[in-house]
């Protein structure tokens, strides 16, 4: 039976005519989970847990974190299943397992669905149903609202869709405390506002790819200059927002220094993207902001993790 299903190749051939059959390796299935995104999700969800100083067993917290990661991976898998046709058209994504013919679309759909339902159910059993509901909402938001509705329909796709990527700290906090506080909502807002300048910096460089696939990214719809202005506006919002945890009393001295310097770095990067509009300097400025934005977010959350996880928290505002 499985030999038969492995030999039915019509769906794979739709994306790669040379694929005779999908005989995906384990690593191909792992790639469907978008491991790099999963790392960011694990990290931000962990910070959402740690700032709450939970009293739950570390085993429960660990299993919850694992399920949040699996749920995020499942939504990435469903996204790749839905987007296989446009992934095949872009150089950045053409080698993904489905467009490359290594995994059949239906295999990816089944894999994503099993992991989605499994991760939500186990999170509910391990922690609580508020966290499970939030994880289910995150998966549906990414796979359905973002991938199926927004991505091909509006230039605001990653602005609204960014909510899915921003939710893990809230899910993490809910998993270990049973409630959601303003602290994790602020972390949500930081990731939410960080998303547009981060993705649009990449979109400025890859606009040709997106145009080929017919995805209405901001540079393709509003033009590069308007995108650059919006990057500056979002960064102007992001830099002070990064300091909000300090004002709210859960970001200490270490975090304050990271947020202040990192915010200035983001602003400098955004201004460079705004200024340099031609040739290689333009590309370097955009990729520089894209790379620095990842470092900025990682350092912000690492600051909170170190302060709260290792007892180094010293309040700035007493």
């Amino acid at each position: 039976m499985s030999s038969l299903s492995n030999s039915l190749s019509s769906e794979a051939q739709a994306f790669n005519p040379t694929a005779s059959a999908a005989g995906g390796e384990v690593s191909d299935f792992f790639a469907l989970l978008k491991p790099r995104v999963m790392v960011l999700v694990i990290f931000t969800a962990l910070v959402g847990m740690v700032i709450s100083h939970p009293s739950v067993s570390p085993i429960i917290a660990g299993i919850s974190l694992l399920m949040i990661a699996v749920g995020a991976g499942a939504s990435g898998c469903l996204n790749m299943w839905w987007d296989a046709d446009i992934d095949a058209l872009m150089t950045r994504t053409a080698k993904r397992p489905i467009p490359d013919g290594r995994i059949l679309p239906n295999e990816a759909l089944a894999f994503g669905m099993v992991l989605s339902v499994g991760s939500v159910l186990i999170l509910g059993l391990a922690s609580n149903w508020l966290a499970a509901g939030l994880l289910a909402f995150t998966i549906v938001f990414y796979a359905v609202v973002y991938s199926m509705w927004l991505k091909r329909a509006t230039a605001q796709n990653i602005v609204i869709g960014g909510a899915a990527g921003a939710l893990p700290p809230i899910v993490g906090q809910a998993a270990v405390t049973g409630h959601v506080s303003l602290d994790s909502v602020v972390l949500f807002l930081i990731i939410f506002i960080w998303t547009p300048p981060h993705f649009w910096a990449l979109a400025l460089v890859k606009s040709g790819d997106y145009a080929k696939a017919g995805i209405p990214m901001m540079p393709n719809v509003a033009g590069p200059d308007s995108t650059r202005r919006q990057i500056v506006w979002y960064t102007l919002l992001l830099a002070p927002l990064g300091l909000a945890p300090v004002a709210m009393g859960f970001g200490g001295w270490l975090y304050a220094v990271i947020a202040a310097l990192g915010g200035l770095g983001m602003l400098a990067g955004a201004v460079q993207v705004y200024r340099l509009r031609e040739g290689e300097p333009e590309r370097r400025a955009a990729m520089g902001l894209f790379g620095f934005s990842i470092l900025y977010l990682l350092l912000l959350f690492a600051g909170l993790l170190v302060e709260h996880g290792f007892g180094l928290f010293r309040a700035v505002i007493v």
């Binding site: 030999s3 038969l4 492995n6 030999s7 005779s20 059959a21 005989g23 995906g24 384990v26 299935f29």
Partner: peptide, 19 residues
């Protein structure tokens, strides 16, 4: 049309089963 699996496909299936 049904065809037998190639050795590579059989090896991949075995790895998937173990996983």
């Amino acid at each position: 049309q049904i065809r037998p699996l190639t050795p590579d496909e059989e090896r991949a299936r075995r790895k998937r089963s173990i996983a």
